[in-house]
Design a protein around this nucleic acid. Structure first.
Length: 449
RNA sequence: UCCUGGAUAGCUCAGUCGGUAGAGCAGAUGGCUGUUAACCAUCGGGCCGGGGGUUCGAGUCCCUCUCCAGGAGCCA
């Protein structure tokens, strides 16, 4: 590596001459003085060039700089509290590495469609830079949490032969003379791995061909899925709340600068401490019935409109987005809604022996309207029940032959959950749409760049 | 797939009653030793998304197609 000094390390080089390799972020000038904001990936710093001391040649170079021209600059680091990073570079030398004419993204406002078309360049912008760093910290915290608790990372395949939950939202691809599908969950494979290692997790991309056009959906998204042998649903809830608390508090501790750039209200994140409230599906429905009346009678037109969407699916059916928002907004931390009607949930979820018709499953709803971030359940361990449910869900017993083996050879109670990384990033960054949480989002109508 | 709203300068938008178009930013040129989305002056820049219709006349009204945004369902 060459001896370039990262801008983020300026605090250790005050008074020294350093070399910075980066890009021109913006430029202001008067006749004899240039102020060049340089970004190098680690940070942004103002470089000051006093032309009478530097000569005509350097003046010409400064004059020629456009937004995103790549440059190598030498200069002396000065502490300057007026600057955003707290430091300033007094230029002694500058060299252009690559020019940049008519850079499409100006410091002024742009529309969403335009920015998405230029996603490969948009990543350089301050907000996007901050989001990617928060995401990096979230991913690191996720791995650290499980690695530090004796979980083994066993990744699931991306190309699969059959579907976990029906074939309607699967991406299909040719697999030699056969068909294969892109994975929509690693869970079934993690159940196999948990029987080998006890505590496991997978972490990778998953794919859903849902024609969803909302702020919470991507067709390709990352999910972490822990699975633990001999773990009950209640223990699963404890694991999930400790996990989410750890991820959130790690980000609060490590991403102060980034959250400031994103203007995130950090106090709201600091409140995310276990235990999280637990609400049963039946309790949720009772709460929602009251809220529906309350909203319908409200002076606020928005609430009256929302009232129509509350319990729109009818009692006994799954909760909708409006229901989640209402329950979620009642607390300052995530809420776990558990024991949904078994009929609306996946075949592999165990029914509650104490409450027939209810599944041992929970969803974790993030506060501030960010919706479901975790889906979880205790898995059915009894082979005969599982076989019956596979048939009831119109799935092929043949396709699940290997999965049923797990119940044939030393079946044990086990549970796990899946956390959506993009929704978590969106929540922690306070974004309005998950499309900004991943470098190159894949959506229903967008697969470029 | 359904519902709603859009498409006008490179970008973000305004455009009155139907009478062939305007701002800010960006770009170019000039000015300024401390600027932070710098400022001041000047200049260039338009198939008003495509097609059809109504009209003497359409950016504006109607139909249609395409694309975009927001929402629903489904989900993480």
């Amino acid at each position: 590596m060459k001896e370039y000094t990262p801008i983020s390390e300026f605090k250790n080089h005050v008074g020294e001459e350093v070399t910075v390799a980066g890009w021109c972020y913006s430029k202001r000038s008067s006749k004899k003085l240039y102020f060049i904001n340089v970004r190098d990936g680690s940070g942004i710093c103002q470089v000051v060039a006093f032309l009478p001391a530097l000569g005509e040649e350097i003046g010409k170079i400064c004059e020629s700089l456009d937004q995103e021209t790549s440059i190598i600059v030498k200069g002396k680091v000065k502490k300057d509290d007026r600057q955003i990073g707290g430091y300033e570079l007094e230029m002694t030398y500058i060299e252009v590495v690559g020019e940049s004419k008519d850079y499409p993204i100006t410091p002024k406002e742009h529309g969403v469609a335009y920015l998405m078309e230029h996603r490969h360049l948009w990543l350089r912008s301050k907000r996007q830079h901050a989001i990617m760093r928060v995401r990096h910290n979230i991913v690191k915290a996720i791995r650290d949490f499980f690695n530090n608790r004796g979980f083994i990372n066993v990744d699931a395949p991306i190309l699969t032969a059959n579907a976990a939950e029906g074939t309607s939202n699967l991406f299909e691809t040719d697999y030699f003379d056969d068909k294969a599908y892109l994975s929509q969950s690693g869970q079934l494979y993690m159940e196999a791995a948990a029987m080998a290692h006890g505590k496991v997790y997978c972490f990778g991309p998953t794919f859903r061909a849902e024609k969803s056009k909302t702020r919470r959906h991507l067709t390709e998204f990352w999910m972490v899925e822990p699975e633990v042998a001999y773990m009950s649903l209640d223990e699963d809830m404890e694991l999930a709340e400790q996990f989410v608390e750890y991820v959130v508090q790690t980000v609060v501790a490590n991403c102060e600068e980034e959250l400031k750039v994103l203007e995130r209200d950090v106090e709201k994140l600091k409140a995310v401490k276990a235990p999280f409230p637990r609400v049963s599906y039946d309790e949720a429905v009772e709460i929602l019935k009251v809220k529906k009346q309350e909203y319908a009678a409200s002076d606020d037109e928005e609430k009256r409109k929302m009232s129509e969407d509350i319990l729109k699916n009818g009692p006994g059916d799954d909760l909708g987005a409006a229901d989640e928002t209402v329950i979620g907004s009642m607390h300052d931390r995530p809420v776990m809604i558990h024991r949904y009607p078994a009929a609306v949930k996946a075949f592999y979820m165990r029914e509650d022996p104490k409450q027939p018709g209810r599944a041992l499953a929970f969803d974790m709803i993030a506060p501030e309207g960010y919706g479901e971030i975790v889906g979880a359940s205790e898995r059915e361990a009894d082979i005969s029940v599982l076989e019956r449910k596979i048939v009831e869900h119109n799935l092929s017993l043949e396709a699940f032959k290997w999965y049923l083996d797990l119940r044939k050879f030393g079946s044990v109670p086990h549970s796990g959950f899946g956390l959506g990384v993009e929704r978590t990033v969106s929540w922690l960054c306070g974004l309005t749409h998950v499309r900004e949480t991943i470098a190159f989002p894949r959506m229903m109508d967008k697969i470029w760049p």
